[in-house]
Amino acid sequence: LVRYRTISKIPQITLNFVDLKGDPFLASPTSDREIIAPKIKERTHNVTEKVTQVLSLGADVLPEYKLQAPRIHRWTILHYSPFKAVWDWLILLLVIYTAVFTPYSAAFLLKETEEGPPATECGYACQPLAVVDLIVDIMFIVDILINFRTTYVNANEEVVSHPGRIAVHYFKGWFLIDMVAAIPFDLLIFGSGSEELIGLLKTARLLRLVRVARKLDRYSEYGAAVLFLLMCTFALIAHWLACIWYAIGNMEQPHMDSRIGWLHNLGDQIGKPYNSSGLGGPSIKDKYVTALYFTFSSLTSVGFGNVSPNTNSEKIFSICVMLIGSLMYASIFGNVSAIIQRLYSGTARYHTQMLRVREFIRFHQIPNPLRQRLEEYFQHAWSYTNGIDMNAVLKGFPECLQADICLHLNRSLLQHCKPFRGATKGCLRALAMKFKTTHAPPGDTLVHAGDLLTALYFISRGSIEILRGDVVVAILGKNDIFGEPLNLYARPGKSNGDVRALTYCDLHKIHR
């Protein structure tokens, strides 16, 4: 019993810090008490220290592992850092350059016999395009090294910054494609005289377009951006097909006994025919423009016929181009109408809503002055909100995010209106959640004399007048207030005048 009563005193000691020596009952000389009392004092002292730490809000209350900052290894790049964003855009520009100039170089340097010394005699450094290609190869190699040090988000939505895990993730992902696209074939085969082989191998750079397509997928929600990307894709495919079309004609031209190829026909049409040795002929500019003209006309199913396939190889390629053109029509131009419709969806919704308003007016036989006010209010409210119901949009977000959005939407009023000066951010967040926005066209009466005042109004834009009878008592403008002081009276009061809008007004109100 003594032991039980001794232990039962522990909660009292913990909360009230009572010393055991003052209790005459606990001072009985028993061996059990002498053993338990020192333990009680020690526990009391420890609990006292913990309570003191909690009340003082000291940093040592938290466990040590929670006080440590997340460790980022040296030379690790955050995937959302500004440097990584700028670097990704730079790589994107280099990939676009590669997609345009690599097929052009591979096709127009394929057994090209233009006048001038061969590239091997001039030297590697004197070729501007080769120098640019070398810079692109170096940048792609540097990009691989950067990807080995860039964080990523795993399946659990955690940012991984450990170098080993980053390397394994990159090896399992895009490393092989990036490595093949970054191989400097110019340096590996330079001086061997195989410019045709170098041009063909350099087309491996186009593998990076797969990554670019995935990154550009984030802009699919913007109709104008999608339309622009589709047109660029169409032009890029036409450019690639033009390079292939020229390569076919250029390879067949020296081996044909009869002059029936499209390059021969082009030379005869523009007065620059090929001679018996295969030299001469149109310039590279004429060849490229004509090839691009043929691919565009074939892809769009126009086909004027002034550039036509004559050999079997050219006919087979033309059939493939027609098939590609039909697929592009289905996948690209078939979506253009939907994209344009999405661009004008706001206008369509406006006309639909206006039609419903006019049908309501016609069905209920609203008189002319009231009908005009109804239409003007709808037009003004639509121009202010673009038909978007803010309350319906915010309803799907958590309250903390709703408060931040409301604070942002009402920031101008909260910053410049005098009653809100000096208020804490928590108070402003709470008030912003209570605001209701209303609009009024010129001549609209917001409050009639004798109406119950259940709200306090803040003028965000425009001006109003307060009338008693036919006498203008006051004219209020931006950041002015009218209405009933909230919670100042037990019952809502009545208006002693009319409140009429002089201009288009936007008002925020808080109800009782």
Score class of each variant (00 low, 15 high):
residue 64 E to C: 07
residue 66 K to I: 07
residue 69 A to L: 05
residue 70 P to A: 07
residue 75 W to M: 12
residue 76 T to W: 01
residue 77 I to K: 01
residue 82 P to W: 08
residue 82 P to A: 12
residue 82 P to F: 05
residue 91 I to D: 01
residue 97 Y to V: 01
residue 100 V to K: 01
residue 107 A to S: 11
residue 108 F to C: 01
residue 114 E to M: 13
residue 117 P to R: 14
residue 122 C to T: 01
residue 125 A to L: 15
residue 133 D to L: 01
residue 136 V to Q: 01
residue 137 D to P: 01
residue 140 F to V: 01
residue 142 V to A: 08
residue 142 V to M: 07
residue 144 I to T: 05
residue 146 I to M: 03
residue 157 E to S: 11
residue 161 S to F: 10
residue 167 A to E: 01
residue 170 Y to C: 01
residue 171 F to N: 01
residue 176 L to M: 13
residue 179 M to C: 14
residue 180 V to S: 07
residue 183 I to Q: 03
residue 183 I to D: 01
residue 188 L to Y: 08
residue 193 G to F: 12
residue 197 L to Y: 10
residue 198 I to F: 14
residue 202 K to L: 01
residue 203 T to I: 11
residue 206 L to P: 01
residue 207 L to H: 11
residue 209 L to C: 05
residue 212 V to T: 06
residue 219 Y to R: 08
residue 220 S to F: 14
residue 221 E to H: 09
residue 221 E to C: 08
residue 233 T to I: 13
residue 234 F to E: 14
residue 235 A to D: 01
residue 237 I to Y: 01
residue 240 W to L: 01
residue 241 L to K: 01
residue 245 W to L: 01
residue 249 G to Q: 03
residue 252 E to R: 01
residue 253 Q to T: 11
residue 254 P to I: 10
residue 254 P to S: 15
residue 259 R to E: 06
residue 260 I to S: 04
residue 271 G to E: 03
residue 273 P to D: 01
residue 279 L to R: 09
residue 280 G to K: 01
residue 281 G to A: 01
residue 284 I to V: 09
residue 287 K to G: 01
residue 293 Y to T: 01
residue 297 S to T: 11
residue 298 S to Q: 14
residue 298 S to H: 03
residue 299 L to Y: 01
residue 303 G to Q: 01
residue 307 V to C: 01
residue 327 L to C: 03
residue 328 M to Y: 01
residue 331 S to H: 01
residue 334 G to A: 08
residue 334 G to F: 02
residue 335 N to L: 04
residue 336 V to P: 03
residue 338 A to L: 13
residue 340 I to S: 03
residue 343 L to G: 08
residue 346 G to A: 11
residue 347 T to K: 03
residue 352 T to W: 11
residue 356 R to I: 03
residue 358 R to K: 09
residue 359 E to M: 03
residue 361 I to Y: 01
residue 362 R to S: 03
residue 362 R to M: 01
residue 367 P to Q: 09
residue 375 E to M: 12
residue 375 E to A: 03
residue 377 Y to I: 01
residue 380 H to M: 04
residue 386 N to T: 05
residue 393 V to S: 03
residue 396 G to I: 07
residue 402 Q to F: 01
residue 414 L to Q: 01
residue 414 L to N: 02
residue 418 K to T: 05
residue 420 F to N: 01
residue 420 F to K: 01
residue 420 F to I: 03
residue 423 A to M: 06
residue 423 A to C: 10
residue 425 K to S: 12
residue 426 G to T: 04
residue 433 M to W: 04
residue 435 F to R: 01
residue 439 H to M: 07
residue 440 A to W: 04
residue 442 P to W: 01
residue 443 G to D: 01
residue 443 G to L: 03
residue 445 T to F: 13
residue 446 L to M: 06
residue 447 V to M: 12
residue 448 H to Q: 08
